[in-house]
Amino acid sequence: MSGKDHDHHDHSDLSETQLRVRALETVLTQKGYVDPAALDEIVEAYETRIGPRNGAAVVARAWCDPAFKKALLADASKAVATLGHVSRVGDHLVAVENTPKTHNIVVCTLCSCYPWEMLGLPPIWYKSAPYRSRTVKDPRGVLRDFGLSLAKDTEIRVWDSTAETRFIVLPMRPPGTENWSQERLAELVTRDSMIGTGLPKQPGAEI
């Protein structure tokens, strides 16, 4: 929906923010800096194509293919670039592996850095003050807000994305999924399991 569509709309029901954003888009368009049709394409890309299925495909591949998993953990940017079907991630992706001993959680306390290419746009809670403030200090409390309780002796490793490196969690493969296809496994991989605030779905709960 471009600003143009609304030129004849009654402005009285629009919020101050809507009006300001419309003014900004109109001025930047009239100045020749942006093309509203390109903005439409960008919005559509993030609404329809760039989302957590990209990351789920990578995780499922790592679960099925030990050589790929090894490459992913060694250099995620390079490993993911070899998969033609996911969107390009640039140079700075790092995959961190959950094990029975260690659970990883990703946060950005400074702004809201997030692996967009792997997971799409960040959810509101990821960008919220409660998540940004508490995760580095009280991660178990944050996990409780997600209904997740880990064993007392599990080491919790929080990755604060303070530079342009982007982190994706490689969760543990659920038991009872031996001989599953990569596509079927991908259905178990939730967005939150790749941030570290959730676990993959268990077999039988994938719908």
Binding site: V43, Y46, E47, G51, V107, T109, L110, G120, L121, P123, I124, W125, S128, A129, P130, Y131, R132, S133, R134, T135, V136, K137, V142, D145, F146, D160, D192, T197
Partner: peptide, 19 residues
């Protein structure tokens, strides 16, 4: 804001839309 207190619980939103 890492380590600041008092912002309350994290509130996940089920089926959150992109915008």
């Amino acid at each position: 804001m890492g380590g600041m207190d008092g912002f309350g619980k994290v509130e996940p939103e089920p089926n959150e839309p992109p915008f």
